[in-house]
Design a protein around this nucleic acid. Sequence first.
DNA 1: AATAAATTTTAGATTTGTCTAAATTTTTAA
DNA 2: TTAAAAATTTAGACAAATCTAAAATTTATT
Lengths: 218, 218
Amino acid sequence: MTYTATEENYIKAIYHLQHVHEKVSTTLLSDEMNTRPASVTDMLKKLESKKIVHYQKYKGFSLTEQGNKTALNVVRKHRLWEYFLVNKLGFEWDEVHSMAEELEHISSNELTIRLDDFLGNPAFDPHGDPIPDHKGKIKIIKQESLAAAPLKKTITVSSVKNQSTEMLELLNHFKIGIGTKLKITRRFDFDESVEIKISTLPATIISKQVAQNVFCII
Amino acid sequence: MTYTATEENYIKAIYHLQHVHEKVSTTLLSDEMNTRPASVTDMLKKLESKKIVHYQKYKGFSLTEQGNKTALNVVRKHRLWEYFLVNKLGFEWDEVHSMAEELEHISSNELTIRLDDFLGNPAFDPHGDPIPDHKGKIKIIKQESLAAAPLKKTITVSSVKNQSTEMLELLNHFKIGIGTKLKITRRFDFDESVEIKISTLPATIISKQVAQNVFCII
DNA sequence: AATAAATTTTAGATTTGTCTAAATTTTTAA
DNA sequence: TTAAAAATTTAGACAAATCTAAAATTTATT
């Protein structure tokens, strides 16, 4: 089965929302897709006829097995291309999203497999998000945000939730990147800011907002 | 200005036809695009309104300066991706066309520039076709088909017109590739077949059909 | 539990790229 | 040079993905 780019975008959006929200509603999905609820209803009917979603009108919808597999394949392609753009073409994190949004719809499976091999079968993309393998399998790692991680243990930054230019700018300033080892030396109750220490650099303080977006392996 | 993938495909098709045919007609273009003449007329009106073609109904059409530039950019992307697929991902010649047909519509200019750099700014794609540079400039080389090249001179294979699997199979058998140096040792009048000699390999005979498709630098 | 509010769906329209069939124009050839 | 043939364009229709406005259903509130 092949799907249009639009269908794939809907499938991916449902997949993502299912991982963040208890229940995915028509309105929520229309927000995510920047369309109107009526358009979502139309698409749901189409995706139901293609056995991508279970759908009962007025009741709700969810991805079928087939839908999930398709979503994972799109996510896989997106993240492999992001990896390529950053690690082979030298783009920064915050520049690659829209390009990967286009590249993820290139259809050839063989291309995906060869790209994966060319890149050395990476398990994580430049933001630290896991890349599903060709069977859709994802490496799960236990992560904790810096806002919740324990004090005085050496921990490794593993992913960053917010992928904006502004966030990248800040993290570059702090010399924080994926793989950076650091220690949380203090937490301040007043604003829940966090003092961190990276190797021999002087300790610095990051805001709660930043800490909540940076995840690490304990 | 940005164009839809379909528009780009029409633009590219007009560009190619203009280089092969004296006059590009609606029917010719509809053949090339696998559509009906009526569809071509519709698209020509659209492209005219976007100043991509000069168009006078019943009289004919041709690319504008702008149209030519756009065509060259699409060709550039197509050939850069083909180069990538063959030289980085290890695909064969005959496998890459349909993938490149999709990849050529990825919009980012910056991506094209970086891909070009990553590949080492190649001037020719895996079939020997020239890759326009970022200004649209093409390296022109004087080429002659093996059917027309002079006898007893060492010549270098520079491009192959027919890019089918069958042609690749045959050329692989003969150990002919882009860059191969060879000598034409004889021509047979009966069927216009050509005897060639590649370094120390025993001489072999290739048919007129093959010879007409293989081009070389004298 | 009834009604108001919110959500979702339907109905009907629009745009893009395509089609077929008919009309128009150009070209060819008698 | 005019009639027939070929090429091109117009008219009207369709599928995909969207929209707005109205109707239907569910949820929340009094």
